[in-house]
Amino acid sequence: MTALLEIEQLGVDLAVEGAQRTVLRDVSLTIGAGEAVGLVGESGSGKSMTARAVDRLLPARATVRGAIRFDGRDVLALRGAALRDYRGEVAFVFQDARAHTNPVRTIGDFMTETLRTQRKLRRPEARRRAVALLAEVGIEDGERRLGQHPHELSGGMLQRVMIATALLTEPRLLLADEPTTALDVTTQAEVMAILDDLRRDRELALLFITHDLELAGAVCDRTAVMYAGQIVEQRASHLLHDDPLHPYTAGLVAARPSISSTSPRLAAIPGRPLSAFEAPEGCAFAPRCGHADEVCVATRPDVATIDEGAARCHHAVALRGRLAEAFRV
């Protein structure tokens, strides 16, 4: 598989309360054409920042290190029209659809704006394409929906409109940032199924951001787990659950209550998730890790490649196969 998106040693500092603070550190990730990759982490882990960096949506005064290449192009160097074209190829679906629509404009205006202003399509043709895509996301009465306003649509319906809109420019990569987190669970299943179908039909690459390991696993071939602004593990999604390589991944799996069995207590990870700028000198996860020793406290681990997976842990090889067990109570 050829690489469509290559993120290399990406580092980002943001201005927070007057000081430049690191939010991403040495993030490297590759997505092949048509490949679906999950990016999983807790709040502040840097998963959304990674996607925003890829789509060049970082706030002003952000300092960016490293490289992002899309189809061989240097993304960080794009300006003006080239950047606009790039954003047509790399589309974004946000968590809160309602916050990303204009309440006083119709769905039709919203959906066709890019096609009319940038692709110079005439209104009837733009609307025809919009209706066709609405049908693909399971909205049959598209013509009527185009005349409605966001408040007239349910959350699940509006998120489907957002997905259809993102696909109107025929992107090759979709960045989806928690697109179903605000939805009811039955609606989530529906939207995920639509996203999965569309992706396969259109050979669309997907970076799917979520806090839910299982949800990522359902639609993604590969999952990257982030902690404190770094990717700590990358692995085939179906192996993450039973054969994790990083203690944090194992901890996340164990901390989640089970729907199919009852246990009196959960194996909680002590402490709280840290942001990159709060992380200590050595391994960022060391303060919360039951396997940490002096080496972990003293030096920041490099990425170790194990069985087509990768983990940022000094003891990944030694702990192999014991992690899932160690957290089980």
Partner: peptide
């Protein structure tokens, strides 16, 4: 979503 779950329309 649980391990091995696939979303269906």
């Amino acid at each position: 979503p649980t391990a091995g779950w696939k979303p269906r329309r």
